[in-house]
């Protein structure tokens, strides 16, 4: 039987994700690096009480639609549908925009476990590589060191950081084949490649499926062994005509004034 990790629909791709699951969500925070269609499918399924592992908690589709994106959903779709119990995240809130997550956090409706970005990447890699933990120099003397083992190695103080164990990783790649080999585009590689293989099940949303053998073996970034399911995005998508929220319009104005997030 030929190996075939390609699944037929986004709903099927996420069908076995249960309530209470811990789910890694790839990307940096920009929607281009986000597994948008998988998140939409997860929201349709309505999994409850999930713990997410991600770099940001999402900005909401309005912000991205304003910038011209058609695939515009990010983690906010899970947050605003009240599916998230806890977020393990490096950048939970934005300085220019109060996202849904911040509102729920202030209302005590979600929990946050904030992890420095490099430590987040390292803890994900530790899970992927089967390590019991890593000693990292980041966070010593700060709020982050609370409750962690400290160790001095060659005169420098480190904190013991444990692997983040997740049930599923939802990632976005550029091209994939039926073995699950993946390549990415430019800075949309980010946490996607880091998370591939770090959870029990990795599901990759790709721009394009290619025949086995079409990806240059020298440039494959994620070996297929890390990937369990592959699904292609539709080539195009219809953008709904819901009005853009006032908050998103204001945040865009601030973004333009400041020149960056």
């Amino acid at each position: 039987m030929p190996i075939n990790k390609i699944v037929a629909s986004f709903d099927k791709a996420v069908a076995d994700i249960p309530d209470g699951a811990t789910i890694m969500i790839g990307g940096f925070g920009t929607v281009a690096s986000t597994p948008t269609c998988l998140l939409e499918a997860l929201a349709r399924k309505g999994v409850k009480n999930i713990t997410t592992v991600s770099n940001t908690t999402g900005f909401g589709s309005d912000v991205w639609k304003l910038m011209g994106y058609k695939f515009a959903e990010d983690m906010d779709i899970l947050v605003r549908n009240r599916l998230v119990k806890k977020a393990i995240v490096a950048a939970p809130v934005s300085t220019i925009y109060q996202n849904t997550f911040e509102k729920l956090l202030r209302a005590g409706e979600v929990e946050v476990d904030m992890v420095p970005q490099g430590t987040l990447a390292e803890r994900i890699r530790a899970a992927k590589a089967g390590l019991g933990g890593v000693y990292v120099p980041t966070g010593v003397g700060t709020i982050v060191e609370k409750g962690k083992e400290k160790k001095v190695i060659n005169g420098q103080t480190y904190l013991l950081e444990l692997p983040i164990q997740a049930d599923f990783a939802l990632i976005k790649a550029h091209k994939g084949d039926r073995w699950g080999n993946l390549v990415y585009r430019r800075t949309s590689r980010t946490f996607n490649a880091t998370m591939a293989g770090a959870a029990k099940v990795t599901i990759a949303e790709v721009d394009e499926l290619v025949e086995l053998g079409q990806l240059d073996p020298e440039v494959i970034v994620t070996p297929g062994i890390y990937v369990d399911r592959v699904i292609a995005r539709p080539k195009d998508v219809k953008v709904d005509d819901k009005p853009i929220s006032q908050e998103a319009l204001e945040s865009q104005k601030r973004y333009k004034e400041r020149g960056s997030a």
């Binding site: 939970p92 911040e102 202030r106 970005q117 966070g139 982050v144």
Partner: peptide, 9 residues
């Protein structure tokens, strides 16, 4: 509420 992001690293 703040964001650590990559600052500590």
């Amino acid at each position: 509420i703040g964001t650590i992001g990559g600052a500590m690293d």
